[in-house]
Simulated assay, not measured.
Amino acid sequence: MSDTDNRKISPGLKIALEYGPLIVFFAVFMLARDRVVTLGGEDYGGFVLATMVFVPVLAASILALWRLTGRLSAMQVMTLVLVVVFGGLTVWLNDERFFKMKPTIIYAIFAGLLGLGLALRRNWLELVLGEALPMQHEGWVRLTRRLVLLFAAMAVANEFVWRTMSDTAWVNFKTFGLPLIMFAFFMANARLFNRYALDNDEG
């Protein structure tokens, strides 16, 4: 059991499995965004077609991660469930709005759960990531507060983009904008990680 839990894969393969499906979605959309494809007597635009490809590719990548590492994070499981549900609704109803709402719901859930944990004085982020990123409790509290604000802002931003901009603008925002925002956030918090790292604790 412990051998399964401790299996590791190369960073390059992990990144490919985590971000590969998003790149596939982007590529299919860019190739098919001006086309209409008829399947089973139904006409599908490029966005729905890209979603149709993305859902099984994401499911396969997450299954591969589970098989290779023996574990999945709560975030990966939640993402898969929401992608299957909202991606399935998008294809079934031929309505792209469902898939575009998915990031809003994911970020709102994360913000709500982290905020609820703080209100209950239970830092769930620390419970999940504390072993991988040893840090003093105060550091986890500060990071969690900032993440609540970040996720809430990203939920609002996603709603604004998909409701007011073109499909292409939203796909670019989803593929590049949101990951870059997350990367910039953690880079901006590097000082917090260093300040509250357990190695810096006088104890």
Rank of each mutant, 00 (worst) to 15 (best):
A50W: 01
L80F: 03
L114E: 09
N158Y: 03
F86M: 13
W140L: 11
G88T: 10
L17S: 00
D199L: 07
L118H: 00
V48N: 09
V148P: 02
L143Y: 08
M154F: 10
R122L: 10
G112D: 01
V57P: 00
D3A: 14
V81G: 10
V91H: 02
Y44E: 02
V36W: 00
L143Q: 09
D201V: 11
G112T: 00
V77K: 13
A50L: 11
L93G: 04
R7P: 11
M182Q: 05
F185I: 07
L118V: 00
R142F: 06
G139M: 12
P134C: 07
Q136F: 02
L49M: 15
V57L: 10
V36L: 10
Y19S: 12
F110R: 04
V28Y: 01
R71N: 02
S2A: 14
F86C: 03
H137K: 15
G45Q: 06
A111M: 04
M1D: 10
L13G: 03
L120E: 05
K14C: 06
R163L: 14
P21T: 12
M101K: 00
V85H: 03
N123Q: 06
M101T: 12
L127F: 14
L89V: 07
R142I: 15
L120A: 04
R71C: 00
T51Y: 00
V84C: 14
I15E: 08
A64P: 05
S2H: 06
M75E: 13
V156D: 05
M135H: 11
W92S: 13
F25C: 09
D3F: 12
F110K: 02
A111Y: 03
G87D: 12
M78G: 14
M182D: 11
G70K: 08
K102T: 06
Y196W: 07
T90I: 10
N158R: 07
G177T: 09
E159M: 13
A152F: 12
